[in-house]
């Protein structure tokens, strides 16, 4: 009884493992570099002394951050971005969380149409969503006499972002052990107490990540704001119009300012998620 011979690989195991490592680590490193090329380029250019965005630099300075500080349009855009992002975050997270609970926890006849409808904007190109909504608000606006502005921009953001929040919270709901709710009821908890002491605290990491994701998706959104905000400018649309009319290191400086809350929030969300795991 000798059995079948061992299969012969085309590479010996060690060479194969090394090749796989080189390929995988190499690809990851290259992609990270790729992701950060424009980001670092922007940060670098924000410290340019002169007013042209070309290399070599005339010198390093914080001049454009000062300009940014004094530029009331930029300040206005910053305020609008923040306002839209905070409001959109609250609504998108709330709607997405409830929808996630429905989609994962319950089995009912209309579950598939419901999930499809609630997630649909995820796969819809943003510019087209913006245009479709612009048409809608224009027609409604003519009927009910309103113009597009911050409110319509917020509605557009919520339509687009709530599905993202739903997907993120759904993962948390999926990993949630429903017998814990039964256990709490058995301990004497009312429906409200079950929510307050069990459901919400256990879903919280997912809800929190969803909120941060929502904030940042709205904070950096260009397409929808561009279509729906009327005369109001946010940071992304402000930068876009700036590039269109001729650039200066003011815009890289804006970009750098925008990056800071972003990276902090992403790190915070990751901490929360890992603490819960």
């Amino acid at each position: 009884m000798t059995g079948y011979p061992q299969p012969t690989p085309w590479l010996n195991a060690r060479a194969e493992a090394r090749l796989a490592d080189v390929l995988l680590y190499g690809a990851t490193g290259a992609v990270l570099l790729f992701f950060y090329i424009p980001i670092f380029t922007l940060i670098a250019f924000s410290f340019q002394e002169g007013r042209f965005l070309t290399l070599p630099f005339e010198g390093f300075s914080l001049r454009w951050y000062g300009e940014l500080f004094r530029n009331s349009n930029a300040g206005n855009a910053l305020w609008n971005s923040t306002l839209i992002a905070v409001v959109a975050m609250v609504f998108a997270t709330l709607i997405g969380t409830l929808a996630a609970i429905v989609a994962v926890r319950y089995r009912f006849r209309l579950r598939i149409p419901f999930t499809g409808l609630a997630a649909a904007p995820l796969a819809f190109p943003q510019l087209l969503l913006g245009i479709v909504l612009l048409l809608w608000f224009s027609v409604l606006g003519r009927q009910f006499n309103f113009n597009t502005g911050l409110v319509t921009a917020i509605i557009g953001h919520v339509v687009y972002i709530a599905p993202f929040a739903m997907v993120i919270v759904a993962v948390q709901v999926f990993n949630f052990d429903a017998t814990l709710e039964d256990a709490a009821r058995d301990c004497g908890a009312s429906n409200w107490a079950v929510y307050r002491y069990i459901t919400l605290p256990l879903l919280w990491p997912g809800i929190f990540s969803a909120a941060i994701f929502s904030f940042l998706l709205s904070w950096g959104n260009f397409y929808l704001t561009y279509s729906l905000s009327g005369a109001a400018r946010t940071l992304p649309t402000f930068v876009f119009s700036g590039i269109a009319t001729g650039s200066s290191p003011l815009y890289p400086a804006i970009a750098t300012v925008v990056f800071i809350p972003g990276i902090l929030l992403v790190i915070l969300a990751d901490r929360m998620r890992r603490r819960a795991a």
Binding site: D177, L180, D182, A183, I198, L202
Partner: peptide
Amino acid sequence: SMVFQKLALFPH
């Protein structure tokens, strides 16, 4: 009062 199969201790 019930003792659950998987105990259902509140992890948080």
